[in-house]
Design a protein around this nucleic acid. Structure first.
Lengths: 338, 338
DNA sequence: TTGTAGGCGTTATCAG
DNA sequence: CTGATAACGCCTACAA
C-alpha cells in the first residue's frame, strides 16, 4: 500500500493524494472525501522514510536522556513527550549510555533521522564549543548547562542553579546548628557534573559559615538507594560526630536514611537528612525526607517551549534558570545539646 | 554530505562507497582504505531514511512502553536497550499514552519506521486476534499477556503468572493468620489488566482458604505512592479490623506503608504489608517491605532473545513464564491475639 | 482543480 | 573489482 495504489484505487493522480494527506494545496471537496475514504479503508499510512527523504526537513524531535532510570526524570520525560506530541511532531527517546558522549550520539542521530530539534537531559557539562557547533539544529540542555568556556549564545538551557540550591540545603542544616555535615554524591567531583555543582554549593556554605571542610565527610556514591545506603554506613562508621547528611539526590537520601535507621539511630533526632530533586518517594518515605525540590514539570514544559521557539525562529538561544524549593518535612531538626 | 560527494571526493563510484560502508561485496583494500578516510574526514553518516526507503527492511527495533514512569520498568528498559544495541540494531523507545491503543500505535510506527521488531511493555490484555494479525512483524509482549481468546501461536510473551504470584502473596498473609486483608490496585478490575490478574489471585486465595471476600477491603488506586497512601487511609478508616494489606505494586505498598505509619500504627506489629514487583525502593523503605519480586532483568534479556529468534526465524512464537520470588523482609508478621 | 515528471540518498542489479 | 542505472515512496514545481 503506497501512495500510488491509493491514487489508482481512488481514480486520481498521485499528487492529489499527497495534497489530501498533507492538507496542502487545493483539492475539491468530493475528491478529498473519496481519497480519504480509500485511505481509511485500506489503512494507508505514508512511509515516513520517503517523506523525510524528500522534504529533508523532518519534524522529528529527539530526547537524549542520560540516566533514563532516574526517577526524577520520569515525570519530565512524560511531560516532554506530551508537549511534543501536542504540537504534532513525531518524538523519539534515545537513551545515552553512561560514559558515551551524548553530543556525538546526537550529531549522529540528527543526521540519520534528520531531526529538527533535540532536548538533552542528564549528563555532563564538559563539551567543547566546536562540538556544539557541529550540532546544526536547535537544541536545549535541560537539567544541565555547560562550562563557562562555551559561548552562551550557541546553546539554550533550562536549569536550576545547582550550586545555589545545594548551598541553600547546606546552609539550612548549618542554621539548625549542625557542624559535621556529611555529603553524598557521585565522584569524580572534579568534573563539570551536576554532582560537582552541588558539591561546590556544599563547600561554599561551609566556608561562608566558617566551618572546616573535612574530606572525610564526603563519600562517593551512585545515584541509587543501595549506593546511598553503603556510603552513609561508611560515613556513620567513621565516628566523626556526624549529625546531618546532605545527599545529592533523593534516591541517595533514601538509601542514607535506611542506613541511619538500620543503625538504630533516629531521623531527625540523631541524624538530619536532606535530599535533592523532589521525587515522590522522598515524601512517602518514613519519615518524609526534606529535599530541594526542582520544578520538574515546569522545566519540561519550558524546555519544549524554548525548543519550538528556536525551531520556529521566534527567538534565539535562551537560558532559563528556575528556583528550586526547600521542602521541610521534618527529617531535619535543630541540633540540641546531648 | 551524501554518498555522491564521498564518491566524488574519493574518486570512485557511488556503489563502491556503498559497498565499503555496508561491508558488502568485494572492494580492493586500497579503495576501501581511501573511501574510509574520506568518510572519516568529512564525518559522513549515511541517511537512514534513504537506507530504509531502499531496503524496505530496516533493522529498527521499537519498545512500546505504557507507563514509562513505572520504576519497575526502568531497569528493564535499560537492559532491553543494551541488548538491542549489543546486536547492532537501532533502537527506539515509544511511550504509549495511557488510554491509547498500543497495538494501533505499533502498527502505525511499524509502517512509518518500517520496524523489524517490537517489544511491548505494560498495558492491557484485551486486543483482538485480528488486531494482532495486522501487526505483520515479530513482536513480544513483556509483562503482559493476552486473553485466552487469542491464539497463542500468533504472539510471543515473556511474563510471570500474575494470578499465581498474587495468590502466593495473599496465601502468605493468610498463613500468618491474617483474616481481614486489604487489597489495593487500579480499577476497573473487570478488565484484562495486570491489576485484575493480581486481584483474581487475591480472591482465589481467600476462597480456597475459606475466607469471605469483602468488597469493602478492596480499594481502587493508581500505581503511585500518593494514590496508595490515600487508598490505604480510606481502608484504615473503615474500621474493618484490617490487619494486612496486599498492594498490587511496590509503589502502592510504599504509599500504603506511609499511611499506616502516619496513622501511628506499626508495621508489622499492627499491619502487615506486602507489595509486588521488587523495586529497589521497597527494600530501602523503613521497614523494608516484603514483596513479590519479578526477575526484571531476566525478563528483559529473554524478551530480546525471543524477539531476535523470531526475527532470524530461528523459532516460532514462544511463551516464557518466569517465577517471581516472595521476598520476606519483615513487613509481614504472624498475627497474635490482641 | 488535477496529473506528470524529476529527484531526495540509498541500495542492488547489472554490465564492464 | 568497479561504475552506471533503476528503483524505493513521496513531495512539488510545472504543465494541462
Amino acid at each position: 500500500m503506497n501512495i500510488k495504489d491509493i491514487a489508482r484505487i481512488s481514480g486520481v493522480g498521485i499528487s492529489t493524494v499527497s495534497r489530501v494527506i498533507n492538507n496542502k494545496g487545493l483539492v475539491s471537496k468530493e475528491t478529498r472525501e473519496r481519497v480519504l475514504n480509500v485511505v481509511k479503508e485500506y489503512n494507508y499510512i505514508p512511509n515516513s522514510n520517503a517523506q523525510n527523504l524528500k522534504t529533508t526537513q523532518s519534524k522529528n524531535i529527539a530526547l537524549m536522556v542520560k540516566g533514563i532510570t532516574n526517577p526524577f526524570f520520569a515525570n519530565m520525560i512524560r511531560e516532554i513527550e506530551r508537549q511534543v506530541n501536542l504540537r504534532g511532531y513525531p518524538f523519539l527517546i534515545q537513551q545515552v549510555e553512561d560514559g558515551t558522549d551524548e553530543i556525538n550520539a546526537a550529531i549522529q542521530l540528527a543526521k540519520e533521522k534528520n531531526l529538527c530539534g533535540i532536548i538533552f537531559m542528564g549528563g555532563t557539562y564538559n563539551h567543547s564549543e566546536e562540538k556544539f557547533k557541529q550540532l546544526t539544529i536547535p537544541f536545549v540542555l535541560t537539567t544541565i548547562t555547560s562550562t563557562q568556556q562555551v559561548d552562551p549564545a550557541i546553546f539554550s538551557s533550562v536549569i536550576i542553579n545547582e550550586l545555589r540550591e545545594a548551598y541553600k540545603a547546606t546552609n539550612y542544616l548549618i542554621s539548625l546548628g549542625h557542624r559535621n555535615i556529611g555529603f553524598l554524591a557521585k565522584s569524580p567531583l572534579l568534573d563539570e557534573t551536576t554532582g560537582n555543582r552541588r558539591y561546590l554549593g556544599y563547600k561554599k556554605a561551609l566556608e561562608e559559615q566558617g566551618l572546616p571542610y573535612d574530606a572525610g565527610l564526603v563519600e562517593d556514591c551512585e545515584y541509587s538507594p543501595s549506593s546511598g545506603f553503603n556510603a552513609a554506613r561508611k560515613l556513620l562508621n567513621k565516628n566523626k560526630g556526624l549529625t546531618a547528611i546532605f545527599a545529592a539526590s533523593d534516591t541517595i537520601a533514601i538509601g542514607a536514611a535506611k542506613a541511619v535507621l538500620t543503625a538504630g539511630l533516629s531521623i531527625p533526632d540523631d541524624i538530619s537528612i536532606i535530599g535533592f530533586d523532589g521525587i515522590e518517594m522522598a515524601e512517602y518515605y518514613h519519615p518524609s525526607l526534606d529535599t530541594i525540590s526542582q520544578p520538574g514539570t515546569e522545566m519540561a514544559l519550558s524546555s519544549v517551549g524554548v525548543l519550538f521557539d528556536l525551531i520556529s525562529e521566534q527567538s534565539g538561544n535562551q537560558h532559563i534558570v528556575y528556583d528550586a524549593v526547600l521542602l521541610k518535612r521534618g527529617s531535619c531538626k535543630m541540633i540540641t545539646a546531648r
